[in-house]
Amino acid sequence: MQLTDESLRKIAALQRNEITEHLIYERIAQVTPDSHNREVLTRIAGEEVQHYNIWKQYTGRDVAPNLLRVWYYYLIARLLGMTFAIKLMESVEQEAQIGDPALLAEIPELPSMLSNEAKHEQELINLIDEERLKYVGSVVLGLNDALVEFTGTLAGLTFAIQDSRIIAVAGL
């Protein structure tokens, strides 16, 4: 079966996406302290290489990864944590699941790869540590209460004292 130039261009883009995702998952796994999460990310990274090799059979060439995207997600994982990076990666997996009807007809492995990408998305969602996220609501409510009390205190002092310098010092 002869692929069109347009199909080969799309396959090369998908191939680049797979090798990029492989490196992203591999790098995030390196900075993940939880062994189970690290194992899942490493396995997903390996499956992304398998997808890359399938695409390579059609293009007949190696494709360079998007290193800027790899470093972006790596820095996100280092600075903001794996949970935040995984949420961003979830959207990447959703994009990868969108199948091109023309390619579906030309590539027999594509349905299997798409179901594998859907499985990856579910596994990434399961990695998110919901226990930590439960406390975020409590922190926000606590900060809200503190802000209301602080504002009320300053308003009371403003009416009682009416000296802006004393109120500013009390606010600090």
Rank of each mutant, 00 (worst) to 15 (best):
M1Q: 11
M1E: 09
D5R: 09
D5S: 09
E6T: 10
E6Y: 10
S7E: 06
S7I: 00
L8E: 00
K10C: 12
I11F: 03
I11R: 06
L14T: 03
L14F: 05
Q15M: 05
E18G: 07
T20G: 06
T20D: 04
E21P: 00
E21Q: 13
Y25T: 00
R27S: 15
I28H: 05
A29Q: 10
P33W: 04
P33D: 14
S35Y: 08
H36G: 08
H36T: 03
N37A: 11
R38C: 09
R38N: 09
I44M: 13
I44E: 05
E48S: 05
Q50K: 14
N53T: 08
N53S: 06
I54H: 15
W55H: 12
Q57E: 15
Q57N: 13
Y58F: 11
Y58N: 05
Y58Q: 12
Y58E: 14
T59Q: 05
T59K: 06
R61N: 06
D62R: 04
P65Q: 15
N66R: 08
R69K: 14
W71E: 15
Y74I: 01
I76T: 11
I76S: 02
I76Q: 10
A77Y: 15
A77L: 08
G81R: 03
M82K: 12
M82E: 12
T83Y: 10
K87W: 09
V92N: 04
Q94N: 04
E95S: 04
A96V: 06
L103T: 10
L104H: 03
A105R: 14
A105W: 01
E106I: 00
L110I: 03
S112T: 08
M113R: 10
M113A: 11
E117K: 09
E121G: 14
E123C: 04
L124P: 01
N126K: 15
L127G: 08
I128C: 00
I128K: 00
R132G: 02
L133C: 04
K134S: 14
K134L: 15
V136S: 06
S138M: 06
S138Y: 10
V139A: 10
V139N: 07
L143Y: 11
N144M: 12
N144E: 02
D145A: 13
A146C: 00
E149R: 05
F150A: 12
F150Y: 15
G152F: 06
T153H: 01
L154F: 00
A155G: 00
G156F: 07
G156A: 13
T158Y: 15
A168W: 14
L172C: 07
L172T: 15
